[in-house]
Simulated scan of single mutants.
Amino acid sequence: MFKVIGVKLKHFFLSFRFFSNQAQKLSYREEVKKETVKLDFDNVFNSIGLAGILYDQLKKRIHPDREKDDQKKELANELAQLISENRRDYNKLLELKKRAELELNICF
């Protein structure tokens, strides 16, 4: 996510000098601005501040070793892997939390 922002900003700043035609330069800048605005900045800020706390909470509650049933253990293992992959994406962690509440009957 932050990589995308960095790439877009890099392209935006590079657009200041690589175009000989002023019209091309302006159209490229506008295109980059439109793509940058599409980002969900609420998720970016929540990911910076709150994702770590939610990640710690989820990894403790959804650990596969806590489950005794094989089917639930397999599901908990899948959710734990998804949590680890998305540990910096707050919205995705919220989705996984809801999924754990529904499928594993875990109360947070």
Rank of each mutant, 00 (worst) to 15 (best):
E35C: 09
N91D: 06
S47F: 04
I48W: 04
L75M: 08
Q57G: 06
K92F: 09
A80I: 05
E67T: 05
R66F: 13
Q57A: 13
L94T: 02
C107H: 14
S20N: 15
A23F: 11
A23C: 07
N77V: 00
Y55T: 07
F19N: 07
K8T: 01
K73Q: 15
L82A: 04
K3Y: 09
D65E: 14
I48T: 09
R99G: 13
L9G: 00
K60V: 07
L94K: 06
K98C: 04
E30T: 14
K34I: 14
F19H: 09
R99P: 03
N21K: 13
I53P: 02
K92A: 11
A80S: 14
F2E: 11
A51R: 01
L79D: 08
N86E: 05
A80C: 11
F18H: 10
F2N: 07
V4K: 08
H11L: 09
A76N: 01
R88F: 10
E78W: 13
K38A: 14
K59A: 06
R99S: 12
R66D: 13
K97T: 15
V37T: 09
L58C: 05
F45R: 12
T36D: 03
K92D: 10
E30V: 13
E85D: 13
Q81F: 13
L75R: 10
K73E: 12
E95N: 07
P64I: 01
E74K: 14
K10D: 04
Q24I: 02
D65K: 08
R88S: 15
L54P: 02
E67L: 01
Q57K: 12
Q24E: 15
S47A: 03
F41G: 03
F16D: 06
I106Y: 03
L39Y: 01
Q81D: 07
K38P: 05
L26N: 12
E74T: 09
I48D: 00
R88K: 15
N77Q: 12
V32P: 04
I62E: 02
G49I: 08
G52Q: 00
Q22L: 11
L96A: 08
N91M: 09
L54V: 11
K33Q: 08
G6L: 04
G49M: 03
F12G: 01
Q57I: 09
Y55L: 07
K68T: 14
L58G: 08
F19Y: 15
K92Y: 11
A51Y: 02
A100E: 02
L39G: 12
A76L: 11
D42C: 03
Q24D: 15
I53T: 12
L54M: 06
E67D: 08
V4W: 00
D65Q: 10
M1P: 11
L54E: 03
N46I: 04
Y90E: 05
H63K: 11
C107N: 12
I48F: 07
K72N: 11
L102M: 13
R17W: 06
Q24V: 02
K68N: 15
N91L: 12
R99M: 15
L102Q: 10
G49K: 02
S84P: 01
I53N: 13
N46L: 10
S15V: 01
Q24K: 09
L50H: 07
R61L: 15
K25V: 02
V44F: 08
I106N: 03
D42H: 08
S15I: 00
V37P: 01
D65P: 05
F2I: 06
I53D: 15
V4P: 03
R99I: 13
